[in-house]
Write a protein that binds this DNA or RNA. Structure first.
Lengths: 340, 340
DNA sequence: TTGTAGGCGTTATCAA
DNA sequence: TTGATAACGCCTACAA
């Protein structure tokens, strides 16, 4: 029922100039709000614009100005996780709000295959965007290389291991993990384990490191299990394994709220009361935290603020300002509820 | 630490031609894989390309060819819902997979304010994309108008009330709602209510209509409460109101899984056993359905397939094919678990 | 098979 | 204050 065969040719500056009886130069000036244009000319152009239904052709403008007015947000998550990650949406919204205020268009690109990876890299090189924000980049990623290689302003959310000299925003996962583990210990738990996850990323590594720091001498590697994703399924498997290794376990630090929620469900199924017999803490303060029974004590992750900061940093670089700090580390807080 | 002042000028076809000792025309031909180019020339150009680090300038190409190779997916959800909606991620992934196979780049745009709305409309008009897929459009939306107005190929996910002559994909909310309500009635429930939602959209309206159809004579308007969003919070408030209106209620159709999950939590807090005393059914078959205790009986919504179909329809239109059917309605199935 | 040259719609640099 | 007139990088007849 639709076809492009009838798509009308868009009106150009040329048409506007003809309708207004002025030159293309003058028309261009009023469109871009430049000085040195008489009120009469301005009025004539403005009415001509609506008369002919003019709308600027961005491709032409980009070609000339070498700017697009758009910023890409690249999300590179494994398929299943993308659907569950509680932070992505908030980061997108935070980023969008800051860019929107600066009149930039945010475009979100998802990378779900190697093919995507290559195509997105081409997209970046193609001049579609003036800057890029990258979530959960991998070290050997063609995208990171494309961005840094062509020196397009880039900001990473989270610090990909192995990339030096980059601008990034993140949280201090080590100290957050240490702090919440300490508070768990302070409730008198003796046998405290961890369901670690995503050890191929800085966040996963750092949360494990913080846990280890908090336990110090008491750290027992047998009480740490590891699963690849921050997912509910990881939590189910992880908690079962932990119980198999030590049925007397009385404290669990889960690397994410989804994992913690699953751990609680497994404990319930095994007849263990939370928090009376086992204390459980999570990470993210996502929707999972409020949904689980009992509600989770967890690390509040300021996802929206992360997005906002990333947007500010990319805008600064686009403006040509030097960025003095390589990274911005945001503060986290612990939200203590009933699960521990 | 970074600045654009040192950004090197990208190599152009001109540079490649010089390095290869050939003309720009020949270079262009090998880049675009056109016939009539000698193996020798091809080899020379290819090595020249990597030598000078050439990458095509998309803005220039778009200007000339009037195509961008990109398709926009516009997500227009209220702030809070965007973070919770279980379907959006799956639609994005489904759309991306089909577009990716056709070598198109998917760009997702979120609309979170009136300002966004205007800017996105400009973006569409600006030639950044060859087609657009719109999720949860509103009737009076500048975006829908921009898309239809400039006759850019468009596909709607869900049928926005008030827009005629559009291409869309969706599910049959009426019959799905009718069917699941009937199955709830078949379990012997006598006082069956509904927590309706999003009545400003076709999906919300249709789910209510289906519920009403299933009840027929027994329909009691007092047992229908309505809240604006398909959210957990709506479910909390809705279930409380329903209990206040009729403490003896023994069946609830929730317009979404999030609402149903909340309803179950409220019922538990009121000492009502689910499903023994009250049966609850939801809609979506999202992650909520598996998380809630007991797990939800619900309508399975094929979100990923919706995205794939939408992508196919937009590609067809871009290719200039006539679309014979205005809409594609996908089949839903009921997943019966423990909550009813 | 290859080269030449005009133009896509804008912006920007000049003169006028 | 305005009007010509080059580019921007690419594609594509058309000519060679």
């Amino acid at each position: 029922m639709a076809s492009d065969s009838t798509r009308p040719r868009q009106a150009t500056i040329h048409d506007v100039a003809a309708a207004a009886g002025l030159s293309r130069g003058t028309v261009s000036r009023v469109i871009n709000g430049e000085p040195y244009v008489s009120p009469a000319a301005k009025a004539a152009v403005e009415s001509a614009i609506i008369e002919v239904g003019y709308v600027p052709n961005t491709a032409a403008r980009n070609l000339k100005t070498r700017r697009s007015g758009a910023v890409a947000l690249i999300v590179h998550e494994p398929h299943s996780l993308f659907l569950e990650d509680p932070n992505i949406g908030a980061i997108v919204l935070g980023t969008n709000s800051v860019l929107s205020d600066a009149d930039y268009q945010l475009v979100t690109l998802v990378v779900d295959s190697n093919r995507d990876s290559e195509r997105v890299a081409d997209y970046l090189r193609g001049g579609f965007v003036d800057g890029v924000i990258i979530i959960s980049a991998r070290a050997q990623d063609p995208i990171g290389r494309a961005a840094t290689g062509m020196k397009i302003p880039a900001v990473f959310v989270g610090h990909p291991p192995g990339l030096a000299d980059i601008v990034y925003v993140g949280i201090d996962n080590v100290s957050a993990a240490r702090t919440i583990t300490e508070r768990l210990l302070a409730t008198g738990r003796k046998r405290v384990g961890m369901i670690a996850s995503a050890l191929d990323r800085d966040s996963g590594q750092d949360r494990l490191a913080g846990f280890r720091e908090a336990l110090g001498e008491r750290f027992d590697p047998d009480l740490v299990v590891e699963y690849p994703f921050y997912s509910y399924d990881s939590g189910l498997a992880g908690m079962r394994e932990l119980l198999a290794r030590d049925p007397g376990i009385d404290g669990v630090f889960a690397a994410s709220d989804a994992i913690a929620a699953a751990a609680i469900d497994v404990l319930r199924a095994h007849g263990k009361a939370v928090p009376q017999e086992v204390g459980v803490v999570g990470f993210d303060d996502s929707a999972w935290a409020l949904r689980s029974q009992p509600q989770l004590s967890t690390v509040h992750q300021p996802a929206m603020t992360l997005g906002q900061e990333a947007a500010r940093l990319v805008l600064q670089q686009i403006a040509g300002d030097e960025i003095d700090t390589a990274g911005v580390i945001l503060q986290t807080e612990i939200t203590w509820r009933e699960s521990a």
